[in-house]
Computed example of a mutant assay.
Amino acid sequence: MHAWESIQAVVDFIEDNLTEELTMEDLAKVAALSPYYFQRLFRRLVKVPVREYTRMRRLASACEQLQETDRTVLDIAEEYHFSGHANFTRAFKKAFGVTPEEMRHIRTITNQYVKPNLLLNYEMADENVPLITDGIVLEVRPTKLEQPKPIIGIAMEIPINDIMGGLDSGISITGKMWDDFHREKASIVGLSPDGKECGVVYTGGAPEGYCTYLAGAEADSNQASEGYTVFTMPAQDYILYSVEAETFNDLVTSAVYKAQTFMEKWMKKHSLRPGGFAVEMYLQDEEGATAMETWLDTIPTQPSEES
């Protein structure tokens, strides 16, 4: 068994037992390692200590309970092993920026700490061959845009970690932007009647640690009315990766994070790095399945960058 498989077994075990009492000794037994070496290996592969990981996954699950059920905050706190209402509220607000009671009334997408799939750090897929793993379908292929494509929407500078997904918690800034765009979409001049909705990530002069994000849709012209921004995809070669998930919420949270994890390795293997922008195009078929295509602007790496 590879080391990552041992830790993945623990990640899966934690996910199946979030409401149970979990001791370090029990988790180490699942990994077939000593508690000392297990904790070191878990932190190296998952990027956080095991206790912190378990706490964040419990908070993510508790968040779903708050939004989807009418159970009391105290019941949820006790189920996920938080010692009392006050302790749970303190931990929850630190993670999400709002209290559990406030979360009940929030319908904007939340960023949540995602259960990792360590396979994606090691598995490679050939071009045009779908990779099916952990509830998602991922496919990568080169493609070319023959004609420039304008996109009009709402743009603002946001922290980069808000779009990276998986490693942070809180109310999603991009989720709020999409809520605003959907409220205003019918009145935005220039959008294509049947155009796909698109999210664009680019530098746009944003300061370090930030990027510019545009929530919008395909347009018929490159002229945006006051208050809106136009981004025009240039006609050029792209690396396109598509990801499918069972629900839209899964698509824009855990699936996106897992796809990003995979693409980091894929790009390195193919001697590429991200260029100046990426465009997400949202798709939906007649059966309600959700998918997203990401068009990556890429730059070949130099030998010194690959070492």
Results as ranks from 00 to 15, higher is better:
Gln260Glu: 05
Thr232Tyr: 02
Glu102Cys: 09
His182Met: 14
Thr108Leu: 06
Thr89Met: 06
Glu102Ile: 06
Leu251Glu: 03
Glu287Gln: 10
Tyr202Val: 05
Leu27Glu: 04
Asp126Trp: 04
Val46Met: 04
Thr54Gln: 12
Val252Met: 06
Thr19Gln: 12
Glu79Gly: 03
Gly166Trp: 03
Thr23Pro: 12
Thr174Leu: 05
Ser169Val: 06
Asp75Ala: 13
Ala186Leu: 06
Ile106Trp: 01
Leu283Met: 12
Asn161Glu: 15
Asn161Gly: 11
Pro148Ile: 02
Leu45Ser: 09
Ile160Cys: 15
Phe38Asn: 00
Val114Phe: 05
Arg90Ile: 10
Gly275Asn: 02
Leu167Cys: 11
Glu123Ile: 09
Cys63Ala: 15
Gln260Met: 04
Glu20Val: 10
Lys176Cys: 10
Ala60Thr: 09
Glu102His: 04
Leu41Asp: 05
Met24Leu: 14
Met281His: 06
Asn117Glu: 13
Glu208Gly: 10
Ala224Val: 00
Pro35Gln: 07
Ser172Met: 03
His182Phe: 15
Asp75His: 14
Ile136Cys: 01
Tyr36Leu: 10
Asp168Glu: 15
Asn111Cys: 04
Glu244Ala: 09
Ile109Lys: 15
Val98Gln: 01
Glu52Ser: 14
Val114Gly: 06
Thr19Val: 12
Glu64Ser: 07
Thr72Ala: 08
Glu184Asn: 14
Asp194Met: 11
Ala3Ile: 11
Cys211Thr: 14
Lys93Asn: 13
Tyr228Met: 00
Pro150Gly: 02
Pro142Tyr: 11
Lys93Leu: 08
Glu25Pro: 07
Phe42Trp: 03
Ile7Val: 08
Val140His: 08
Leu272Asp: 05
Thr69Met: 02
Val201Thr: 03
Tyr282Asp: 02
Val46Lys: 09
Val114Met: 13
Ser83Val: 13
Tyr210Leu: 12
Glu197Lys: 01
Ile239Thr: 05
Val46Leu: 13
Asn17Glu: 08
Ala215Tyr: 07
Leu296Pro: 03
Ile188Gln: 01
Leu131Thr: 06
Glu218Leu: 05
Glu52Lys: 11
Thr108Ile: 13
Phe88Val: 03
Pro35His: 10
Asp179Cys: 01
Thr229Arg: 02
Arg90Gly: 06
Glu280Gly: 13
Phe262Pro: 00
Tyr241Ile: 11
Ser172Tyr: 01
Lys144Met: 10
Leu214Cys: 00
Ile158Leu: 13
Glu102Asn: 07
Thr174Gln: 05
Asp180Gly: 13
Leu45Arg: 11
